[in-house]
Design a protein around this nucleic acid. Structure first.
Lengths: 129, 129
DNA sequence: TCTTGACCTTCCAGTGACTGTAAGCTTTAG
DNA sequence: CTAAAGCTTACAGTCACTGGAAGGTCAAGA
C-alpha cells in the first residue's frame, strides 16, 4: 500500500502520515525499490487509533506512550488511567474558562451597525471596564 | 518610562511588549540616547486594551484592526460587530465540541489501576469503537 | 576606580500539530 | 513521447508568545 492509499484508508493526509513518522509516532516505513513508503493493513489500524486519540485531544507524546504500552501486554496500565483523568480535568477547566468568555462576549455583542467608531459601545467597553 | 516599568504598569512582560512591536501591534517606540525604548503613560492604556482583547481571545490581527479603528472616529464600526459575533460563534462551537469530548472521556475513565495493558478497558475502547 | 548585578538591546530557536511550498524523481495514462 | 499525477526531501509558515545567548548600559557599593 502506498502512502496515498493509506491516507484514504485511514482518513489521515499523506503529509500528516509523514509527519507522524518524523516525530516518531510511526516507525519508519519500509521502502520499495523506488524509495516510496510501503505500508500494510496493520498500519491503517495504527493510524485510526492515533486519529481517534487526537480527536480526544490526546497529545502526540501521550499517544506515543499508549502505542508503546500495547507492545507490553503484561505491564501495568495505571498510567493510562492517569492520562485520561488529566485530560478530563484539562477539558473541564477549559469549559469553565470558555463559559466566562462567552458571557463576556455576549454582553459585548450589542449591535453597533450604522454607528461611528467614536460611539461604538463595544470599543467603549473594551477600553474601560 | 522604560520597558520594565511599562511591563509592570500594564502587566504585560517586557518580552511580549517587544514582540507586539515586532508584529506591528505597537508602533516602534522612540529610543533615547542609549537605545532603550522610551514609553509614555498613553502606552499603558494601549497595552491594557490589547491585553483585555487577548483575554477575550481576539487574534492579534483583529486587535490591530480595533486599534486602527480608533484612529478614525468617523468610520463605521460595523466590522467590530462582526468580529465579536464571529468570536462568539467560534467559542460556542468549541463549547459544543468540548461537551462531546468530555462525555467520551468520562465514559472512558473507568479505573484500570492494577490491571495489565492487555485487559485495559480504556485501550480496548480506543482500539475499536 | 573597579566591580557586580540588574537591566537593556538584538537575534535565533523552540513550542504543538500540522500545512504549504519548492525542487526533483517515478509512474501512469493518453 | 509527453504531460499529469504522485512520490521523495527539506525548509518555511502558522499562532502568540517564551527562552536563551551574546553583548551594551547603568547605578550602587567597596
Amino acid at each position: 500500500m502506498k502512502i496515498s492509499e493509506l491516507a484514504i484508508a485511514s482518513n489521515v493526509p499523506a503529509k500528516t502520515i509523514r509527519y507522524y513518522e518524523q516525530v516518531g509516532l510511526l516507525k519508519p516505513a519500509r521502502r520499495n525499490d523506488n524509495g516510496y513508503r510501503q505500508y500494510r493493513i496493520k498500519d491503517i489500524d495504527t493510524l485510526v487509533f492515533i486519529r481517534r486519540c487526537r480527536e480526544l485531544n490526546i497529545a502526540i507524546g501521550d499517544i506515543k506512550q499508549l502505542l508503546d504500552a500495547q507492545q507490553n501486554p503484561n505491564a501495568s496500565c495505571a498510567f493510562i488511567d492517569d492520562m485520561i483523568a488529566k485530560q478530563l480535568n484539562r477539558i473541564q477547566q477549559t469549559q469553565r474558562e470558555l463559559a466566562i468568555l462567552e458571557k463576556t462576549l455576549s454582553a459585548l455583542a450589542t449591535s453597533c451597525a450604522n454607528h461611528k467608531i467614536e460611539d461604538c459601545s463595544i470599543l467603549h467597553h473594551l477600553k474601560s471596564n
